[in-house]
């Protein structure tokens, strides 16, 4: 028999049983008269245990219980409704006394006699955790950007700027000695050229760290080959797609490999590192696997954490498997749909 044709009480029962949200009905004294399977799962009380008991003592935390009771009594005595027919967020309590955030709507069933109320409750713990993680992740991204700018300023100050200052002092001295000591001027100009070359190298290296030009110009294949060449460890690269991908995907994949290779070189003591990048079904799968000492964790330092934020920001996922003594696999899955 189709549900639409069913007897209203059968229909009500079917809806109650199938509902994903907790559905709890109480009478005007606050006693439970209906308690669906979702409520059983969420609160830990079976329907047989819950029905007939006061709802307040089952699912309302002690600190909120008196307010719940007095609110119900005031409304039943003719007071204005405060919580009816609107969405509210409150704290609810499980059978074991643990509390959790809950989304709640209460409605009154219109019927002759004493009022009956139905509450629809949804555990929003995961939503709260996701919101908190989102806020934390945004804060980390802002903080990482600030830190990157500070590091860039420091690198410029300690590196290229020092060489350029040295260059200025050397050239000033050379000009002073131009008439009196040509041999010294020759030496000073050689020194100036050396300072200039060093400053240029450092600026090039900094620019590459900000955004690799080879990635913009040629895509992932030459960019990852360049990373591998400069990694200072043996790296094998396989399966990198030739096609160009959305710029955010390319740069994220690049930084996944860059961070992984930096970590391998610094910590892993590996003799072999394999990089593979495959584009399958609209997802770019990036893997960096080494045979080093393992033991890496996502929370081990700011590098992988920052990478996770970067990957999450484009809707991707990042995993690390790193059993002690076996090696580390860093795997990112990056959606390529624009």
């Amino acid at each position: 028999m189709a549900l639409i044709d069913a007897d209203p009480s059968v229909r009500y029962r079917a809806l109650l049983l199938a509902a994903l949200d907790c559905v709890v009905a109480i009478d005007h004294t606050g006693r439970v008269i209906d308690w669906n399977p979702a409520a059983e799962r969420t609160f830990g009380w079976s329907a047989a245990e819950a029905v007939g008991r006061e709802m307040g003592e089952l699912i309302v935390p002690p600190a909120l219980r008196e307010r719940h009771r007095s609110g119900l009594a005031r409304y039943v005595a003719g007071g204005e409704p405060v919580v009816l027919d609107r969405r509210i967020e409150i704290t609810a309590m499980r059978r074991d006394g643990s509390e959790f955030p809950c989304e709640l709507t209460i409605t009154r069933i219109v019927q002759p006699g004493d009022p009956v109320f139905v509450g629809y409750l949804r555990d929003i713990t995961e939503r709260h955790l996701a919101e908190a993680e989102l806020h934390a992740s945004r804060a980390r991204i802002v903080s990482a950007a600030d830190e990157a700018r500070r590091r860039l300023e420091r690198d410029l100050h300690d590196g290229a700027q020092q060489h350029l200052v040295g260059l200025a002092l050397t050239l000033r001295l050379a000009r002073r000695k131009l008439g009196s000591d040509p041999a010294l001027v020759g030496e000073l100009l050689d020194e100036a050229l050396s300072d200039l070359a060093t400053a240029t190298d450092e600026l090039r290296e900094l620019a590459r760290g900000l955004h690799p030009a080879v990635l913009t110009e040629g895509g992932l294949q030459p960019a990852l080959a360049s990373l591998a060449k400069r990694a200072g460890i043996p790296v094998t690269i396989a399966d990198v797609p030739e096609e160009r991908l959305p710029p955010t995907v390319e740069i994220t994949a690049y930084f996944v490999v860059a961070e992984a290779l930096t970590n391998v070189a610094r910590y892993a003591g590996a003799s072999r590192t394999d990089v593979s990048v495959r584009h399958i079904g609209g997802v770019l799968h990036v893997e960096v696997r080494d045979n080093g000492r393992g033991g890496a964790t996502m929370n081990g330092g700011s590098g992988l954490r920052g990478l996770l934020d970067r990957v999450s920001a484009i809707g991707g996922t990042l995993f690390v498997e790193s059993p002690e003594g076996v090696g580390t696999l860093l795997r990112a899955e990056l959606p390529c749909a624009s």
Binding site: V165, G166, L169, T170, R172, L173
Partner: peptide
């Protein structure tokens, strides 16, 4: 160091 030596010489 590099600055000290260049400044000294100059």
């Amino acid at each position: 160091n590099a600055f000290r030596s260049r400044a000294k010489r100059m």
